[in-house]
Nucleic acid binder design. Structure first.
Lengths: 245, 245
DNA sequence: ACAAAAGTGTTTTCTTTACACCCATGG
DNA sequence: CCATGGGTGTAAAGAAAACACTTTTGT
């Protein structure tokens, strides 16, 4: 079998990045721009998710990994396939049709959507091939295709999942403060959390390990740094059967 | 556009049914059987999920609904798209290749997997076109393709989801006893639950409504019947932000 | 009257929530 | 010495867990 693209199948990647400085949860989007050849008027000018067709000999997961690597250079980031989008009309608004025709791909394309978790600081966005930019999840720009819906569904999944699994640490640097963790939860969930109760809860976890280190270069009292131990987490993990309906 | 099948795309349906009598959670599987034309020896003889290719003008959800209807005659059942399976080698063990060649479909088929929740009693399995049979989730027969994996992942999703959403009632008749609910949780989660604590918890929910009715035709003390009100549930539903990692 | 499952209360423990001030550091 | 965010404890309320006997019904 030759290694061709599967014309009607793609992956799309919702790349979430947390910015510890501004305390915002962001999505990495690429520019979609097309001009009229004669008038030079922009025909399409908005943002979309990064994505690409799947190769014939490639698994869906590998495909998503490849797309992320091409966009960011990163590998080994947390990744989750969260939904397939395949409505027959999903690429059929006016701008999308212009774009699709220009790019010569199938209008009935099914996309397998993934989301990734990483740190904004890990991506050099300054001279990115795709003109990728971070956008706060709460201030999304004009977005093409059905990608806004895809982003929002990814975000819902993230919100649910971060309550029951320690995926939050994928969005933080290896060394973080308790307040970083709180800020992150507050950004994702859009809620306020009591600092004392939160600290107690987090610090009591055996897999949150205090380091012999404090913040440096901050113009205030430097905070204690912690790390997350996945090993310890997995060792002490106990499935909860608490029914909460 | 003609209404053709999309050759490399299918949906597969994991149909869960709870049997209130035997107190078992079951999966509906269809027979896969093929004989050698000359020797009449069985070449393939096992079970698979029901599934079919998606039509060009059909959404993924509609496709799954159609497949369920063809199998069971039922519509309007609880349905969830839970994962896409698209490994390039997913249909490539020996029996699968024999089957695939016989059925002339693409070996690189991506399937969008759904699960459905219903009551075993709602399906007339006796003279089913597909020789469909209920199989207890804990005693699955020999299963073809990658469908065992698909079933197990559906089951994992169901286990998680039934802890935080009232989907359990999709598996029960409209009128049920508290012990029915407990039996169902115990079957799904494979755990034992304290009856007194469980009753208290469930009966206190405003959306669990006691009826002016008791069981009839049972050879023991007849139990109080209840119903689940989705309306009330949605009205009083409050998103929980409890962090439990 | 007996078998079989339905139904019932209390206590202990754990978890969550609410709440306000002092501390350490860099500038 | 001051501004800034870091860090701390206690009490009350609510939820979960542990636990054994009585009641109702059909046969």
């Amino acid at each position: 079998m030759t290694n061709e693209l599967i014309q009607n199948l793609s992956v799309d990647c919702v790349v979430f990045g947390f910015d510890t400085n501004t305390k915002t949860l962001n999505v990495l989007l690429i520019k979609r721009y097309l001009e009229d050849e004669k008038t030079n008027q922009p025909l399409v000018d908005d943002y979309v998710l990064t994505g690409y067709h799947v190769y014939q000999n490639e698994s869906l997961d590998d495909s998503a990994t490849r797309v992320l690597k091409e966009l960011t250079g990163l590998t080994g980031q947390y990744k989750k396939q969260f939904k397939a989008f395949g409505d027959p009309n999903r690429l059929k608004n006016e701008k999308d049709l212009i774009w699709v025709e220009n790019q010569r791909f199938n209008v009935r394309t099914i996309t397998i959507a993934y989301y990734f978790l990483l740190k904004t600081e890990d991506v050099d966005v300054s001279n990115n091939t795709y003109q990728a930019k971070w956008h706060p999840i709460n201030q999304l720009p004009k977005i093409g295709f059905d990608h806004k819906q895809i982003i929002l569904e990814a975000y819902e999944d993230l919100k649910t999942k971060c309550l029951s699994e320690p995926i939050i640490f994928e969005l933080l640097p290896d060394k973080f403060t308790i307040n970083d963790v709180q800020d992150l939860y507050e950004s994702i969930l859009n809620i306020e959390i009591d600092n004392r109760n939160f600290r107690r809860k987090v610090i009591n976890k055996k897999y949150i390990i205090p380091l012999d280190e404090k913040q440096v270069g901050v113009s205030k009292r430097p905070a204690q740094l912690y790390m997350f131990s996945k090993d310890i987490y997995q060792k002490i993990y106990q499935k909860s059967y608490l029914i909460n309906i």
